[in-house]
């Protein structure tokens, strides 16, 4: 666990992550996806397929919770519902949809990547790859990286729509706010979408790298795979939180006036 180790270990874990990232880009530049098209498409399909129900449930719940909590507060202070919808949509686009979706993908896809690669390390399949001159980064990491990046963006957009729809349903069915009052988008600008988009791209890059690193560094027997999976979830989730902080600050100073 990087965070609990000494500062020096921490720094080197971060350095190793950047090394893995640049190696991955290198192999992608050398046409890794063209050679591993089959694997890439399989991963793309598998990641999306395994996450879609999970994202629907969690982001739908998130939308309902958010609208519910806000409307209770509005009821208490001033019963003026016209601002609720736009404010909800704005925070969803800028903050909650990308970040909660990112955390969920870190959990679902990140732990899956680490478990797969970790099992291959433990059963010496990765060594076998090296023996036949197949580079693990080229063969295992690059296809997963590309698939996870694409799926993070797609699943986040999908999750955002789900949460907004779920929120709108709660507002309409429980509080009787008409849809045309709730779904007003005139105060959302391109920079808001850009802020949200930047976040999910950043998460899409960080999650597979953190997870693959944890998987490749698996040590020991069956408990090794468990530890690697745990480390992947924590590191990837923590990356999401930190990137959220950095990008929110960036957007505050440079994108919004």
């Amino acid at each position: 666990m990087g965070l609990l180790l000494s500062r020096q270990h921490q720094r080197s874990a971060l350095l190793r992550a950047f090394a893995l990232l640049s190696q991955t880009f290198l192999w992608l530049g050398r046409g890794s996806l063209r050679r591993r098209r089959q694997q890439f498409i399989e991963q793309l399909f598998e990641m999306g397929n395994r996450s879609v129900l999970f994202i629907t449930v969690t982001l739908g719940t998130l939308g309902m919770i958010s609208v519910f909590q806000v409307l209770i507060q509005v009821d208490r202070i001033l019963p003026e519902y016209s601002v609720v919808g736009p404010a909800f949509l704005l925070t969803m686009v800028r903050e909650f949809a990308p970040t909660i979706a990112g955390l969920m993908i870190a959990t679902r896809v990140g732990s899956g990547i680490a478990a797969e690669i970790g099992s291959m390390v433990v059963t010496e399949q990765v060594d076998a790859l090296r023996m036949c001159n197949a580079e693990p980064v080229d063969y295992l990491v690059a296809p997963r990286f590309a698939a996870c990046l694409i799926q993070t963006v797609l699943l986040t957009m999908y999750g955002g729509v789900v949460s907004v729809v779920a929120g709108g349903l709660v507002a309409n069915l429980v509080w009787g706010i008409p849809y045309e009052v709730f779904f007003r988008v005139d105060n959302i600008t391109y920079s808001d979408f850009l802020a949200g988009f930047l976040k999910c791209v950043a998460y899409g890059i960080a999650i597979p790298i953190a997870a693959a690193q944890a998987g490749l560094e698996t040590e020991g027997g069956s408990e090794g795979v468990g530890t690697a999976t745990t480390r992947a979830v924590v590191n990837a989730s923590f990356c999401v939180v930190v990137l959220d902080f950095i990008l929110s600050g960036f957007a505050f100073f440079f994108l919004f006036d």
Binding site: G118, G224, T229
Partner: peptide, 8 residues
């Protein structure tokens, strides 16, 4: 071992 990873 793969089972443990999946379970996590």
């Amino acid at each position: 071992a793969p089972g443990v990873g999946r379970a996590v």
